[in-house]
């Protein structure tokens, strides 16, 4: 998935400091006018590409739209989410997203994938960052090498790993059998027990460098004299790590974890390519895309998209709140 996401918002104070008090002069009125002139194209594009389509998606989730007849969509209320069909004589059945086992399976897969992969990436990223922060010969080469998985397109990584994890000719089975960890070849991407782990493996490979770089940036902010002081006091390095380093880089880790989690929740391409049509790895995004464009259930897919959007929106709000608290804390 290619998406770009950003760190903490710029502080208001920093901007205000640059504005001179002469607010009501002709000059600043002209500046104000040009500010809006400069902003309008960007706002317009974002409204067209993000705002309006989002509203449309939410609208379709309350209609009976189908892929072949989107324009003929009619309002049906919440029936895509929740519907009770009465069969008479007290018998009836619930339908809709909230009663769809396949949907909840996709939700579970997404949560499972997100929690496991982000946890592994955080721990591994921290280890990588600590290594890259140490002084050693050839460090710049290792730092460059670490960027390679990040630069490779997700689709290419999925294909590369699909080949490496091939059940008959894959190098992964060969390696593991040589070492003696497995006795017979494993069909990593097809086997229900390993399919999700195959996805997690590729994701960990691709994303750990990103985690490591974000954490490394946090590590480099820790002033060197902290370590000097700890050394003079004869404190064990492990204790220094837990008591000094980790608390100091906690904000950097927190931000990295939230970015990764937001990203993991919407995963699509890796799963679509590595394990196609596999219910064991189907995530919320894959479920939505399938319903929208393959099963001709456009409205139902829109409902799933809307649900996913709400989940991510809540986490985003949480993040903005945390980031703000953090900025406030530093300001004091």
């Amino acid at each position: 998935m290619s998406n770009l996401s950003m760190g903490a918002p710029p502080t208001e104070k920093a901007i205000e400091a640059q504005e001179r008090p002469a607010t009501r002069s002709n000059l600043s009125r002209e500046r104000l006018r040009s500010a809006w002139l400069f902003l309008t194209p960007m706002i317009l594009v974002l409204a067209l590409v993000a705002g309006w389509p989002l509203i449309q998606t939410i609208y379709y989730s309350f209609t009976d739209a189908s892929l072949t007849d989107i324009d003929g969509a009619e309002w049906i209320g919440i029936r895509n989410y929740w519907e009770y069909v009465d069969y008479g004589d007290g018998e009836g059945e619930y339908f809709g997203l909230f009663f769809d086992d396949q949907w909840w399976n996709a939700v579970w897969n997404t949560v499972y994938y997100t929690v496991i992969s982000v946890s592994i990436e955080t721990v591994l990223g921290l280890v990588f960052a600590l290594v890259l922060n140490a002084e050693f010969r050839g460090r710049s080469i290792v730092r460059a090498a670490v960027l390679i998985p990040w630069a490779i397109p997700t689709i290419v990584s999925a294909k590369m790993w699909a080949w490496m994890m091939n059940d008959q000719f894959g190098i992964l089975n060969d390696m593991l059998m040589t070492v003696g960890l497995i006795s017979s070849p494993v069909a990593w991407t097809a086997n229900p027990e390993t399919a999700m782990w195959a996805v997690i493996m590729v994701d960990v490979w691709k994303t750990t460098p990103f985690m490591a770089l974000l954490i490394l940036a946090g590590l480099q902010m820790v002033p060197g004299d902290v370590y000097e002081a700890a050394k003079i006091d004869g404190i064990h390095p492990v204790k220094v790590f837990w008591k000094v380093t980790l608390p100091l880089i906690r904000p950097a880790i927190l931000v990295a974890v939230i970015f990764r989690a937001l990203d993991a929740l919407r995963i699509f391409d890796l799963i679509y390519v590595l394990t196609p049509n596999n219910t064991d790895t189907k995530t919320m995004s894959v479920f939505a895309q399938e319903n929208l464009f393959q099963f001709d259930k456009f409205a139902y897919g829109s409902a799933a998209s809307t649900f996913l959007f709400l989940v991510i929106a809540m986490i985003t709000l949480l993040y903005i709140k945390i980031a703000r608290l953090d900025l406030g804390g530093r300001g004091r």
Binding site: P53, L54, I55, Q56, S285, A288, Q289, T306, L308, I312
Partner: peptide, 10 residues
């Protein structure tokens, strides 16, 4: 932070 899938239908 928008998930791409949220705007896909629209």
């Amino acid at each position: 932070m928008f998930p791409q899938i949220a705007v896909l239908a629209g």
